[in-house]
Design a protein around this nucleic acid. Sequence first.
DNA 1: GGCCAGGCTAGCA
DNA 2: TGCTAGCATGGC
Length: 297
Amino acid sequence: MAHMKLMPSGIYSFEHTSRRLAALEKSAYQVRDDRFIRTLRLGERLIAVELWWMGDGLAVEVSEELSSQQLEELSQRLRRMFSLDVDLSSFYQRLEGDPNLGNLIRERRGLHVVLDASLYECLIRTIISQQLNLSFAGTLIQRLIERAGDTIVHRGETLWVFPTPEQVANLSYEDLQELQFNRRKAEYVIDLSRKVVDGFDLDQLYTLSDDDVVKKLLPIRGIGRWTVECLLLFGMGRTDLLPAADIGVRNALRHVFETTEQPSEEEVRRLGEAWSPWRSYAVFYLWDYLGSTKNSQ
DNA sequence: GGCCAGGCTAGCA
DNA sequence: TGCTAGCATGGC
């Protein structure tokens, strides 16, 4: 049994941030009482991590012995996944007084982006989510995990672990069509996985600028501009991304500005200039705001 | 029952 | 270079 407590670098609200974990329930996080359970691959090892907020930091419990090196690796991954080192004070300084976004930003003080566990997982999730409502996308992701992934037993309960590129590469297009993927989406997901197995190194993207990541990924079939922007935002935690074509962002802005029409992609980009260099966070707060308006209707 | 969903590709002008 | 039909199915 291993314990850790990870402290945030600046103002941090787990109450706000954990809403995204609950939204990802089943396909990424299990919710048990006040704890969130996430399965991870640590090198070759499969582990289940329990997470909860304890006073002023993120408490972590792993139900296995880990070497000090593995603990250090886990600590770094969780710090990145939960954006614990992202200090939002300059974001608030810049935008808390914004006439349009100020209210919803103040209401969410301390909300941080939660990243996916790996760039591969993020890309697969994002591709599956293209043009589908989030609920159905979550169903498809869960079906993929249960078709291709591994399981581990944690506290007597069987939990799924997101599949590796190898595991997905071994599927056929028909396998995914049976799970109600359309043919093209089945091809995108499997072909990308085979490309990674054949040596396309996603982690090398960490060394590149935002623009160079776009150039590197855009030629891949199934990956458009929106998908790369989501990878930069939810996979890599880059803080100044604006997926301006995103229907959720446009809907949220329609609410904020109380207009009947959604703003166009170009209008969103123009509006977003005022949010730089924190466009990712403006977008993330808008998504969270949109979720709250949907739940209250 | 019809329109929309955290888009993308291929084909056409 | 720019535009758009088609994708496939669930949610509301």
